[in-house]
Amino acid sequence: MTSTRARRQSTLELVAARIRAHVVDMCAGPEGGHLGGALSSADILAALYFSVLNVDPQRTDDPDRDRFVLSKGHAAVGLYAALAERGYFPVEELTTYGRPGSRLMGHPVRAVPGVELPTGSLGHGLALGCGFALAHRYAGRDARTFVLLGDGELQEGSVWEAAIAAASLRLERLTVIVDRNGLQLTGATDGIAPLEPLADRWRSFGWAVRDVAGHDPDELARHLDAGPWEPGRPSVLIARTVKGRGLPFLEGRSSSHYVTLSPRNHARAVRALRTTEDAG
């Protein structure tokens, strides 16, 4: 405990903490938001936008940029927080989330700078990512493509259509991250439709697989920066995460899936994040 307290937070950990703080604030707005799955993705998003992705918020149409697709589009509040922190639009705009006149919809839309394609209906992102990766290859660009999938989303058959295609097309500059928080709207993913052995499943589809703890953004970035891991194969990083990560009163509960935080619970959440940060 003493040693963890003494350790200084890394830049990526600080970014992840800010993303979580924004997510909590947005979910305290009038519409609420997909809190649990945004918090489980926060470290992944921090790693992507502050280490891995070769992007420039000032040049969102640069053809050589890396592409990112948030296939689990319901984690929009997490993506918006990451984009704002990265400088795509002012952080103050996050307060407009879900309100009339805002461009920050409940699922990502292209009107938001940095959003490549809209998502929200599950099972779409990987095929889009295959299209990006293929276009880069045709154009002779080195750019990489990253797709963040939810684990419940893996129940959609279209994910596996695209998984077959990516391997068959040898899209080695395509990387999937699975936010493996183990929970979906009404309960445990493995109680509803078992996904394990998940790494073996992806491997059998022809992917290079790494199965890691999902809340150390520096470690996540190290893996993602290193890709492709095996020549000729797309990569999948299974990130073992905790739904609602950072809020002890919601962690590991499927009830964190969609939350409108009351003023009292918002204050509680803000305190909890500060405590986590201090302890981190």
Binding site: H124, L128, G131, L134, A135, G157, E161, A162, A165
Partner: peptide
Amino acid sequence: GEQYLNLGIAEHNLMGIAAGLAACGR
């Protein structure tokens, strides 16, 4: 040549890949 690609019997995937390609100017 490389302007023809048989993506197999997967029509959702076909449309998704087409969208990704089109978003990149194809």
